[in-house]
Protein backbone atom coordinates (compact mmCIF):
# COMPACT_ATOMS: atom_id res chain seq x y z
CA UNK A 1 0.00 0.00 0.00
CA UNK A 2 1.38 3.39 -0.92
CA UNK A 3 1.65 6.11 1.69
CA UNK A 4 -0.97 8.35 0.08
CA UNK A 5 -3.45 5.46 0.07
CA UNK A 6 -2.75 4.87 3.75
CA UNK A 7 -3.35 8.53 4.60
CA UNK A 8 -6.60 8.55 2.64
CA UNK A 9 -7.70 5.33 4.29
CA UNK A 10 -7.07 6.76 7.76
CA UNK A 11 -8.93 9.93 6.81
CA UNK A 12 -11.90 7.99 5.42
CA UNK A 13 -12.03 5.77 8.51
CA UNK A 14 -11.98 8.84 10.77
CA UNK A 15 -14.73 10.53 8.77
CA UNK A 16 -16.94 7.45 8.85
CA UNK A 17 -16.42 7.13 12.60
CA UNK A 18 -17.62 10.71 13.06
CA UNK A 19 -20.44 10.48 10.51
CA UNK A 20 -23.12 9.28 13.00
CA UNK A 21 -22.62 12.44 15.08
CA UNK A 22 -22.78 14.65 12.02
CA UNK A 23 -25.97 12.96 10.86
CA UNK A 24 -27.47 13.06 14.33
CA UNK A 25 -26.86 16.81 14.48
CA UNK A 26 -28.93 17.38 11.33
CA UNK A 27 -32.52 18.46 12.05
CA UNK A 28 -35.40 16.06 11.49
CA UNK A 29 -37.32 16.53 8.30
CA UNK A 30 -40.84 17.92 8.65
CA UNK A 31 -42.90 15.06 7.23
CA UNK A 32 -40.61 12.03 7.50
CA UNK A 33 -38.88 12.85 10.80
CA UNK A 34 -35.89 10.68 11.58
CA UNK A 35 -36.37 8.26 8.71
CA UNK A 36 -35.00 10.50 6.00
CA UNK A 37 -31.53 10.35 7.57
CA UNK A 38 -30.65 7.17 5.73
CA UNK A 39 -30.44 9.55 2.78
CA UNK A 40 -27.05 10.73 4.08
CA UNK A 41 -25.62 7.32 3.23
CA UNK A 42 -27.98 6.43 0.41
CA UNK A 43 -27.26 9.34 -1.88
CA UNK A 44 -23.44 9.32 -1.62
CA UNK A 45 -23.35 5.58 -2.29
CA UNK A 46 -25.65 6.06 -5.29
CA UNK A 47 -23.28 8.72 -6.60
CA UNK A 48 -20.26 6.47 -6.10
CA UNK A 49 -22.16 3.70 -7.88
CA UNK A 50 -22.55 5.99 -10.92
CA UNK A 51 -18.94 7.18 -10.74
CA UNK A 52 -17.70 3.58 -10.52
CA UNK A 53 -19.81 2.51 -13.50
CA UNK A 54 -18.55 5.40 -15.63
CA UNK A 55 -14.94 4.81 -14.51
CA UNK A 56 -15.19 1.16 -15.44
CA UNK A 57 -16.60 2.04 -18.86
CA UNK A 58 -13.89 4.62 -19.59
CA UNK A 59 -11.09 2.31 -18.40
CA UNK A 60 -12.52 -0.47 -20.57
CA UNK A 61 -12.56 1.80 -23.62
CA UNK A 62 -8.92 2.71 -22.96
CA UNK A 63 -8.05 -0.96 -22.64
CA UNK A 64 -9.86 -1.94 -25.84
CA UNK A 65 -9.01 0.91 -28.17
CA UNK A 66 -5.73 2.27 -26.84
CA UNK A 67 -4.45 -1.16 -25.78
CA UNK A 68 -3.32 0.03 -22.36
CA UNK A 69 -2.87 -3.21 -20.38
CA UNK A 70 -3.02 -1.44 -17.01
CA UNK A 71 -6.45 0.01 -17.84
CA UNK A 72 -7.91 -3.48 -17.41
CA UNK A 73 -6.97 -3.51 -13.73
CA UNK A 74 -8.70 -0.17 -13.24
CA UNK A 75 -11.79 -1.37 -15.13
CA UNK A 76 -12.09 -4.49 -12.99
CA UNK A 77 -11.53 -2.57 -9.75
CA UNK A 78 -14.17 0.01 -10.73
CA UNK A 79 -16.53 -2.77 -11.83
CA UNK A 80 -16.31 -4.45 -8.44
CA UNK A 81 -16.88 -1.13 -6.70
CA UNK A 82 -19.92 -0.50 -8.89
CA UNK A 83 -21.41 -3.74 -7.58
CA UNK A 84 -20.43 -2.90 -3.99
CA UNK A 85 -21.86 0.64 -3.97
CA UNK A 86 -24.77 -0.50 -6.11
CA UNK A 87 -25.66 -3.13 -3.52
CA UNK A 88 -25.40 -0.50 -0.81
CA UNK A 89 -27.69 1.83 -2.76
CA UNK A 90 -30.21 -0.90 -3.45
CA UNK A 91 -30.33 -1.93 0.23
CA UNK A 92 -30.60 1.56 1.73
CA UNK A 93 -33.19 2.67 -0.87
CA UNK A 94 -35.88 0.11 0.00
CA UNK A 95 -35.24 0.59 3.75
CA UNK A 96 -36.25 4.21 3.28
CA UNK A 97 -39.03 3.43 0.82
CA UNK A 98 -40.66 1.06 3.32
CA UNK A 99 -41.12 3.96 5.75
CA UNK A 100 -41.75 6.76 3.27
CA UNK A 101 -43.92 5.02 0.67
CA UNK A 102 -45.08 1.99 2.71
CA UNK A 103 -43.61 -0.55 0.30
CA UNK A 104 -40.16 -2.04 -0.14
CA UNK A 105 -40.02 -1.59 -3.85
CA UNK A 106 -41.76 0.50 -6.46
CA UNK A 107 -41.15 0.31 -10.19
CA UNK A 108 -39.90 3.84 -10.27
CA UNK A 109 -37.56 5.05 -13.02
CA UNK A 110 -34.52 5.69 -10.87
CA UNK A 111 -34.89 2.48 -8.85
CA UNK A 112 -35.40 0.31 -11.88
CA UNK A 113 -32.56 1.81 -13.87
CA UNK A 114 -30.22 1.48 -10.86
CA UNK A 115 -31.21 -2.16 -10.58
CA UNK A 116 -30.56 -2.72 -14.28
CA UNK A 117 -27.15 -1.05 -14.12
CA UNK A 118 -26.36 -3.15 -11.05
CA UNK A 119 -27.35 -6.28 -12.99
CA UNK A 120 -25.06 -5.29 -15.87
CA UNK A 121 -22.10 -5.03 -13.53
CA UNK A 122 -22.94 -8.27 -11.73
CA UNK A 123 -22.97 -9.91 -15.18
CA UNK A 124 -19.63 -8.21 -15.87
CA UNK A 125 -18.10 -9.73 -12.73
CA UNK A 126 -19.59 -13.16 -13.51
CA UNK A 127 -18.06 -12.94 -16.98
CA UNK A 128 -14.69 -11.93 -15.55
CA UNK A 129 -14.79 -14.79 -13.08
CA UNK A 130 -16.19 -17.63 -15.17
CA UNK A 131 -15.43 -16.54 -18.74
CA UNK A 132 -12.05 -18.24 -18.82
CA UNK A 133 -9.16 -17.02 -20.99
CA UNK A 134 -9.81 -13.83 -22.92
CA UNK A 135 -12.53 -12.68 -20.55
CA UNK A 136 -10.68 -9.40 -19.98
CA UNK A 137 -11.51 -8.25 -23.51
CA UNK A 138 -15.06 -9.59 -23.35
CA UNK A 139 -15.52 -7.79 -20.07
CA UNK A 140 -14.18 -4.58 -21.54
CA UNK A 141 -16.69 -4.80 -24.40
CA UNK A 142 -19.49 -5.44 -21.93
CA UNK A 143 -18.55 -2.56 -19.59
CA UNK A 144 -18.33 -0.22 -22.57
CA UNK A 145 -21.78 -1.28 -23.76
CA UNK A 146 -23.08 -0.98 -20.22
CA UNK A 147 -21.92 2.60 -19.99
CA UNK A 148 -23.42 3.49 -23.37
CA UNK A 149 -26.65 1.89 -22.26
CA UNK A 150 -27.21 4.07 -19.18
CA UNK A 151 -29.06 6.90 -20.98
CA UNK A 152 -31.24 4.40 -22.86
CA UNK A 153 -32.17 2.53 -19.72
CA UNK A 154 -32.91 5.81 -18.00
CA UNK A 155 -35.09 7.26 -20.76
CA UNK A 156 -36.99 4.05 -21.39
CA UNK A 157 -37.67 3.33 -17.73
CA UNK A 158 -38.47 6.98 -17.09
CA UNK A 159 -41.13 7.00 -19.77
CA UNK A 160 -42.44 3.78 -18.31
CA UNK A 161 -42.89 5.02 -14.69
CA UNK A 162 -41.78 7.73 -12.21
CA UNK A 163 -42.03 8.26 -8.42
CA UNK A 164 -38.58 9.11 -7.06
CA UNK A 165 -37.94 12.42 -5.26
CA UNK A 166 -36.43 14.78 -7.81
CA UNK A 167 -32.69 15.40 -7.96
CA UNK A 168 -33.37 19.10 -7.69
CA UNK A 169 -33.91 18.57 -3.95
CA UNK A 170 -30.15 18.74 -3.26
CA UNK A 171 -29.44 22.46 -3.88
CA UNK A 172 -32.56 23.47 -1.95
CA UNK A 173 -31.61 21.63 1.26
CA UNK A 174 -31.28 23.85 4.37
CA UNK A 175 -27.67 24.36 5.48
CA UNK A 176 -28.03 22.18 8.60
CA UNK A 177 -28.93 19.26 6.34
CA UNK A 178 -26.51 20.22 3.58
CA UNK A 179 -23.37 20.12 5.73
CA UNK A 180 -23.75 16.48 6.90
CA UNK A 181 -24.73 15.52 3.36
CA UNK A 182 -21.60 16.95 1.78
CA UNK A 183 -19.58 15.54 4.67
CA UNK A 184 -20.88 12.05 3.85
CA UNK A 185 -20.29 12.59 0.12
CA UNK A 186 -16.67 13.44 0.90
CA UNK A 187 -16.28 10.37 3.12
CA UNK A 188 -17.75 8.09 0.47
CA UNK A 189 -15.59 9.63 -2.25
CA UNK A 190 -12.46 9.04 -0.15
CA UNK A 191 -13.52 5.47 0.53
CA UNK A 192 -14.16 4.96 -3.18
CA UNK A 193 -10.74 6.28 -4.21
CA UNK A 194 -8.94 4.23 -1.54
CA UNK A 195 -10.71 1.01 -2.50
CA UNK A 196 -10.24 1.67 -6.21
CA UNK A 197 -6.51 2.28 -5.85
CA UNK A 198 -5.96 -0.72 -3.59
CA UNK A 199 -7.94 -3.08 -5.80
CA UNK A 200 -6.35 -1.84 -9.03
CA UNK A 201 -2.89 -2.17 -7.47
CA UNK A 202 -3.67 -5.73 -6.43
CA UNK A 203 -4.87 -6.51 -9.95
CA UNK A 204 -1.77 -4.96 -11.54
CA UNK A 205 0.48 -7.00 -9.26
CA UNK A 206 -1.47 -10.14 -10.08
CA UNK A 207 -1.01 -9.44 -13.79
CA UNK A 208 2.72 -8.90 -13.23
CA UNK A 209 3.11 -12.17 -11.33
CA UNK A 210 1.25 -13.95 -14.12
CA UNK A 211 3.54 -12.39 -16.75
CA UNK A 212 6.58 -13.45 -14.73
CA UNK A 213 5.29 -17.02 -14.50
CA UNK A 214 4.83 -17.07 -18.27
CA UNK A 215 8.39 -15.83 -18.75
CA UNK A 216 9.64 -18.50 -16.38
CA UNK A 217 7.79 -21.18 -18.33
CA UNK A 218 9.25 -20.03 -21.60
CA UNK A 219 12.86 -20.01 -20.38
Amino acid sequence: MTRSTLVMLALAAGMFALAPWMINAAPNEATMGLVYKIYFFHMPSAWMFMVAAIASGIASARFLFLKRPSADGWALAAGELAVLFGAFTLVTGPLWARKAWGVWWVWDARLTSSLMLFMIFVAYLLLRKYGGPGSDKLGAGMALFGMANVPFIYVSVNYWRTFHPLTSVVPTLPVEMGIPLWYCVTAFTLLFIVLLRMRARLEHQRARVEALYLLEDES
Binding site: F145, N149, V155, S156, V157
Partner: peptide
Protein backbone atom coordinates in the same frame (compact mmCIF):
# COMPACT_ATOMS: atom_id res chain seq x y z
CA UNK B 1 -28.38 -14.37 -21.61
CA UNK B 2 -26.83 -13.01 -18.42
CA UNK B 3 -25.01 -10.35 -20.43
CA UNK B 4 -27.62 -9.79 -23.10
CA UNK B 5 -30.85 -9.37 -21.13
CA UNK B 6 -29.83 -6.55 -18.78
CA UNK B 7 -28.22 -4.80 -21.76
CA UNK B 8 -31.35 -4.99 -23.90
CA UNK B 9 -33.83 -3.83 -21.27
CA UNK B 10 -34.52 -0.61 -23.24
Amino acid sequence: PIMLYPMTVP
